[in-house]
Design a protein around this nucleic acid. Structure first.
Length: 404
DNA sequence: TTTTAAATAT
DNA sequence: GATATTTAAA
């Protein structure tokens, strides 16, 4: 009997221990995730970061000490402070549903490629769900609507080609409504012609990007053309990324002017008006986010972060952060770490925005300085938006309702 | 139908 | 260039 009891106890204990270990591990993961989030605010919350880091360390140690075996194998205590490291490329994909990036690859002349790849591979896997602005996820710089494109910039249906070709070529995604065939897919925007789209990694754009609308066949407005309203195109993430980049170089959205931005973006076909419009929207979003209450504790993690004066939606951020080294933007975590910057170097020294542009600096530049200060303070309260849907735990689903 | 991004007007 | 308004995608 006793023996039996003993054994029983033992088992129990073992189980309990395993469970404990497991929990501990989870906890550590959670902490790491949080730390990534905090890293965004490194400047403002250095101690916080430190604390979390320490907590992680100690947890790990504990874990190692306790059940070394198990844990070590699995998560490897050795890993220690990984700040940025490894994290989870693997995990990421799993969780995230919100993004539907379908394809992200772009080729930009400068930075993107590698980072993107690294960062995200999930795209492929998930996608169907997305509804929001797809262009957010898409890759190419821009596309046009198939039908009406009276315009200049891009070659018509263009596609991919252009983009790649020039490196910066057109970048909008078309609002396409794919339904051309008539079959209406309910729209899953991302549904895209999957094959094509996804597959090509390097290239192309896939038409898939923006979900749906347009009508392939339909053309409502194709009236004779021309001067109708310009076809609406959506800003692809890549394009937005360039925009952010430019903004950063110019010292922030408040000092940058559409023209300057456009020049820095080097996207051909991009017009001042487009930039202007985008900038307007950007400023709006950037500005006072939620005037109202930060309620008790916002249960929800920020969906948007403004770093260095730049408002970055998570998915985007991921791309941006990863992609462009020079940027100060730091991470943003969506509620669930999905977007965590995989390789994002933690400590972006936050040097004041330095315009590398040789352009002449005008009075604006001065304002710029000011702007940066303001920015700092602003980013805290303002820059953050709350997600509309809450479900904190599960929620990675809807990330942002706002997108550029 | 509503929301909102992009285009256009002021 | 900034802001307001309109249009159309989602």
């Amino acid at each position: 009997m006793i023996a039996e009891i003993h054994s029983h106890n033992t088992t129990t204990t073992t189980n309990a221990e395993e469970e404990k270990t497991q929990r501990c591990q989870e906890y550590i993961e959670a902490l790491e995730e949080e730390r990534r989030k905090i890293q965004v605010f490194q400047r403002e919350l250095p101690l916080c970061l430190e604390l979390v880091t320490q907590a992680i360390e100690s947890c790990k140690q504990k874990l190692c000490g306790t059940s070394t075996e198990n844990f070590q194998e699995q998560s490897g205590c050795s890993e220690q402070t990984s700040s940025e490291i490894p994290v989870l490329e693997e995990f990421m994909p799993i969780k995230r549903n919100s993004s539907c990036s379908d394809n992200d690859e772009d080729e930009d002349e400068d930075d993107d490629e590698q980072s993107e790849k690294t960062t995200i591979d999930h795209d492929k896997s998930i996608d169907k769900s997305c509804k929001k602005s797809d262009w957010l996820k898409s890759v190419q710089l821009w596309n046009q609507t198939p039908d009406l494109l009276p315009r200049e910039e891009s070659p018509r249906k263009l596609s991919v080609i252009e983009v790649k070709r020039n490196g910066n070529g057109g970048a909008f995604h078309p609002f396409k409504k794919e339904k051309s065939g008539g079959t209406s897919t309910t729209n899953s925007p991302c549904s895209v012609p999957a094959a094509a789209a996804v597959a090509t990694s390097s290239s192309t754009e896939t038409a898939g990007g923006c979900s749906g609308g347009g009508g392939g066949g339909g053309n409502k407005e194709d009236k004779e053309g021309q001067s109708q309203r310009k076809a609406r195109r959506c800003w692809s993430p890549e394009l937005h990324r360039r925009f952010l980049n430019a903004l950063q170089q110019l010292g922030g959205s408040h000092v940058a002017t559409p023209k300057q931005i456009r020049e820095l973006m080097k996207v051909d076909g991009l017009t001042n008006d487009e930039v202007k419009s985008h900038l307007q929207k950007y400023r709006l979003h950037t500005r006072r986010p939620t005037p109202s209450i930060h309620n008790d504790n916002n249960p929800q993690p920020p969906q948007f972060v403004v770093v260095g004066g730049i408002w970055v939606p998570p998915p985007e951020y991921a791309a941006v952060a990863t992609t462009s080294p020079g940027e100060e933007i730091s991470s943003v975590p969506a509620p669930t770490s999905i977007y965590a910057p995989i390789a994002a170097p933690p400590p972006p020294p936050p040097p004041p925005p330095v315009p590398q542009t040789a352009k002449s600096r005008t009075p604006r530049q001065q304002y710029k300085q000011m702007d940066s200060d303001e920015r700092a303070s602003r980013s805290r309260d303002t820059g953050v938006r709350c997600n509309s849907s809450a479900t904190s735990s599960s929620a990675h689903t809807s990330t942002a309702s706002l997108a550029f």
